[in-house]
């Protein structure tokens, strides 16, 4: 009986219960102080476990692992020596380049982004069978590519603009103001992840289009040349969830994912290791994982 109730409490904390089961547990917690205490202790230990591994996700990747992922190491042999860690990825990261494209190009990119109307995020990963499925997958990939093209295009505008990124709502002393304003134009409220630990400052928000619906592009900048400017695009989505997926447009990196009706994309010139770390932070802060 105790095991069963513990199972329930843990599943409740993990958000794994159906609505009716959740209500049952909530009623139980309302009535039983000991259960409330046990749940609080369980929640605290889970939080501590997160803290234990929080740093690991932000560490620069050892070069040997990047080489292994790229297939640049010898195939495994029995008793083979694994290459020692030599230097950190950070040393490899090139300073971000600035685009020199002119204003007309930038304006057309902006038009593409805002007026595009059809824009999907991350629909290329749905498993589909048969010829119709393949056709649908091709179409989905094409539309997805269009959206990623546009996201990269918008990001180029931000980089070109240098000190004054093209935002609809600039950040004020209280960034919540900007969020409130842009949320008024969106189907769902947008929260602002704090990326100060990465040295990134929120500069403002812009309304963009994603899956035919308005979405928010949050712009961050930093003096850290290894990261550079960064865009975080958050919109609503009717597509199935997908795990973070990496893509690239010329020298713009994109990491995008969907979770419970929300679509997210991080756009920047930062190395994928940084993007991944930042995406984890975003996902954790916005409960988007």
């Amino acid at each position: 009986m105790q095991q069963r109730s513990d199972d329930r409490l843990v599943a409740y904390l993990d958000g794994e219960l159906e609505v009716a089961q959740r209500r049952e547990v909530e009623a139980w917690l309302d009535a039983d102080p000991a259960a409330r205490q046990r749940m609080a202790a369980l929640a605290e230990s889970a939080h501590l476990l997160h803290l234990v591994f929080a740093e690991a996700i932000h560490e620069p990747l050892p070069e040997r692992l990047i080489a292994a992922a790229r297939g640049e190491t010898a195939p495994p042999q029995a008793g083979a020596q694994i290459l020692p860690f030599r230097r950190r990825l950070g040393a490899q990261i090139a300073a971000p380049r600035r685009w020199r494209t002119g204003l007309p190009v930038a304006a057309s990119l902006l038009g593409l982004l805002v007026g595009g109307g059809v824009a999907y995020l991350g629909v290329g990963k749905v498993a589909l069978d048969g010829a119709a499925g393949k056709q649908a997958a091709l179409e989905a990939t094409a539309v997805n590519n269009l959206w990623l093209d546009n996201a990269a295009g918008y990001f180029k505008l931000v980089v070109n603009a240098s000190d004054s990124p093209p935002v609809d709502i600039p950040a004020t002393e209280d960034p919540r103001e900007a969020l409130q304003k842009i949320s008024q134009s969106l189907p769902q409220e947008v929260r602002l992840p704090d990326l100060k630990p990465w040295g990134l400052s929120f500069r403002g928000a812009r309304l963009v289009v994603e899956e035919g619906r308005p979405a928010a592009a949050l712009i961050y900048t930093t003096d850290n040349k290894a990261i550079g400017s960064l865009g975080l695009i958050i919109g609503s989505s009717k597509q199935p969830d997908i795990s973070p997926t990496f893509d690239r447009r010329q020298d713009v990196n994109l990491l995008y994912w969907r979770h419970q009706g929300r679509a997210y994309a991080l756009v920047g010139q930062a190395d994928i290791g940084y993007l991944w770390g930042i995406a984890n932070d975003v996902a954790w802060q916005l409960d988007a994982v």
Binding site: A56, H58, L61, L65, I66, A69, T245, I272, W276, N280
Partner: peptide, 12 residues
């Protein structure tokens, strides 16, 4: 390879 690199921090 890109997918693999992307998932490396979590694998570690």
């Amino acid at each position: 390879g890109d997918q693999l690199i992307a998932v490396l921090p979590r694998l570690r």
